[in-house]
């Protein structure tokens, strides 16, 4: 029996695949060029970075009261924004859910609104609300609420859509109206997923709330910006450390709650 030769290790790409690969490589290279990426500049900036780091240590400890007050404000903004966002997400998610809303124009409108909330960054919402309601944490809370709605409403709608249709059919067979299907079958089944999404939203809002201060929407970002603008790197380091502690604490608490609810 003649010995069979082994197949080639790699298949030769088709001309189209080869052209696509070359195109993708060119896009990546042009992106680096367009972004002004320069190893030489990075190298030249290293001493400056080392100097800033040196000035950051040790972090300033004489203004902890103000830092903590700003930190608390950030957390309040995140919690209130998330809570409002989750509450308003519920009706929006029901309207966006095919199983619960048979009217496609309403469904399309709800989905478009959710997409708008999600695609516009929270910083842009903060700029809009600062103009609308003035500087301060209220503008930041509204920005976080809208940002949460864009995220939570989409995942709530998906969670509602994915639930087993059996209990819903049983309730429909018992003469339940659509509100009955939602409250008695869909929401209880989707609840763990919705709680997990809400906790993720709280984490996201805590991180988001930190930077909203950069545009005057309250919270920790304001402290950080003032310290950086005044080249007071030790104070900036104190703010960064406080932000780190808050974000890690919220993430840990949220993860523990998620494990308890879903696990």
């Amino acid at each position: 029996m003649p010995e069979r030769t082994a197949p080639p290790r790699l298949e030769r790409p088709s001309p189209l695949s080869f052209a696509l690969l070359v195109g993708a490589a060119a896009l990546v290279l042009s992106s680096f060029q367009g972004a002004g990426f320069s190893l030489a500049e990075l190298w030249a900036g290293l001493p400056q970075m080392a100097r800033i780091l040196g000035e950051m240590l040790p972090p300033a400890h004489d203004r902890w009261d103000r830092v903590l007050a700003s930190l608390l404000e950030t957390f309040h903004m995140a919690l209130a924004g998330t809570l409002l966002g989750v509450l308003f997400s519920l009706p929006l998610a029901v309207l966006a859910c095919r199983a619960l809303n048979p009217s496609w124009p309403l469904r399309a409108a709800a989905r478009a609104l959710i997409a708008l909330f999600r695609t516009v960054p929270d910083l842009v919402w903060a700029l809009i609300f600062v103009v609308a309601v003035g500087l301060g944490p209220f503008a930041g809370t509204l920005a976080l609420m809208v940002d949460t709605m864009g995220y939570a409403a989409r995942f709530f709608a998906e969670a509602m859509e994915e639930q087993d249709k059996g209990p819903q059919e049983a309730l429909a067979a018992a003469g339940a109206p659509r509100s009955g299907l939602l409250m008695a079958a869909v929401l209880p089944a989707a609840l763990p997923s919705m709680v997990a999404t809400s906790l993720f939203c709280l984490e996201k809002a805590t991180r988001g709330g930190v930077v909203l201060g950069l545009v005057g929407a309250g919270g920790m970002g304001m402290e950080l910006k003032v310290a950086m603008d005044l080249f007071n790197y030790a104070e900036a380091a104190a703010s960064i450390l406080a932000i780190l502690l808050l974000v890690v604490a919220v993430e840990q608490a949220s993860a523990a709650l998620r494990r308890r609810i879903i696990g």
Binding site: G166, P167, A170, L171, A176, A184, A189
Partner: peptide
Amino acid sequence: RARVGFVFQRHNLVPRLSALSNVTHGAI
């Protein structure tokens, strides 16, 4: 529909709710 009970092959209960809540659903 409310005058006719329907028993499904796969019971179709709401899994996270108690037996009692599932029974009260019959009066929905």
